[in-house]
Design a protein around this nucleic acid. Structure first.
Lengths: 128, 128
DNA sequence: CAGAATCCAGCCGGATACTG
DNA sequence: CAGTATCCGGCTGGATTCTG
C-alpha cells in the first residue's frame, strides 16, 4: 500500500462504501449470491423494493462490474442478472464487515441507548 | 452465525454501511486514528468539511460508540475526540474493504468505462 | 474555541403511469 | 416480462448567522 494520495484513496473507499450501503445493494447481491435471477423474481424475493430502485441498483452494480446482465431475446424478453467474479470477490470484505456488525450489534445498541439516555436526562429537564 | 432473521441482519449491515459511507466518517476516523484531536484541529485537517457536518458526523459516531467526546471545562472550552476500542475494532473490517477497494479500483474503473462506452455506442445513434 | 440554529439547493427514493 | 418516464415528498449536506 503506497501512501501517495491518501485523500483520493479515502474518496474512492467512501464512494464504494456509499454504493454498497445504498440501501438495496446488500439485499440484491444477497439474492444473487446463490444463483442468477430474473428481474421480477428478484423483485418478488426482495419484496419492498420498487422497480425503479431495483433497476437503478442493478444498473449501478452492472456499471461497476459487480453484476452481469444477460438478455435473451425471446418473447416475452428474458433478462437474467448474475454476480460477476468481481462481485463475488467484493462479497468477501463485505461479508467480513457484515460478520463484525452482527457480532457487535449489541455493543452498538448499548452505546446508542447510553447516549440517548444521557441526552434526555441531565440536560433538557426544563422541557417536557 | 445463526440464520434466524437474515432480513434484519441485512438491514443492520446496510445501516452500518450507510453510516460508514456517510461521506465524512472515513476522513474523520482516519484523522482520529493516530491520536485524539480537538474540534477545530479536526476541521482544519479535513479541510473541506463544514462545521455542521463535522459535528453531526462526530455526534453520530459518538452515539454509535465509535468515538468518545471529552470536555475539559476551561475557558475557552476544550473538547477532544478519540476513537474508542469499538471504533478501533470497526476499523479492521473497514480497512479490509479499503484495501480491497484500493487493489481493485482499476477493475471497477475499467468496468465503468466499458459500460459507458457501450451505452453511448450502439443504442442512441439517432440522437445527437 | 466549540458548537447550535436557520435557510436553502440538490439528490434520493417511492408511487404511478406508460412502453416494447 | 422488463423496464422507462414523470411527479413529488423528504432527507442530506452546505453557507451563513448566532451563542456560551
Amino acid at each position: 500500500m503506497e501512501e501517495g494520495h491518501p485523500q483520493e484513496t479515502c474518496l474512492r473507499i467512501s464512494q464504494l462504501l456509499s454504493r454498497v450501503g445504498d440501501k438495496w445493494v446488500i439485499l440484491v447481491i444477497r439474492a444473487l449470491q446463490p444463483e442468477a435471477k430474473r428481474f421480477n423474481a428478484l423483485k418478488r424475493e426482495i419484496g419492498d423494493i420498487s422497480q425503479k430502485m431495483l433497476s437503478a441498483t442493478l444498473r449501478n452494480l452492472e456499471r461497476d462490474g459487480f453484476v452481469r446482465r444477460t438478455v435473451t431475446p425471446v418473447t416475452p424478453p428474458m433478462v437474467e442478472y448474475a454476480l460477476t467474479d468481481l462481485g463475488r470477490e467484493l462479497l468477501c470484505p463485505v461479508q467480513a464487515l457484515a460478520d463484525w456488525t452482527a457480532s457487535n450489534a449489541d455493543r452498538i445498541e448499548a452505546a446508542r441507548a447510553a447516549y440517548d439516555s444521557r441526552g434526555e436526562d441531565g440536560a433538557a429537564a426544563t422541557a417536557a
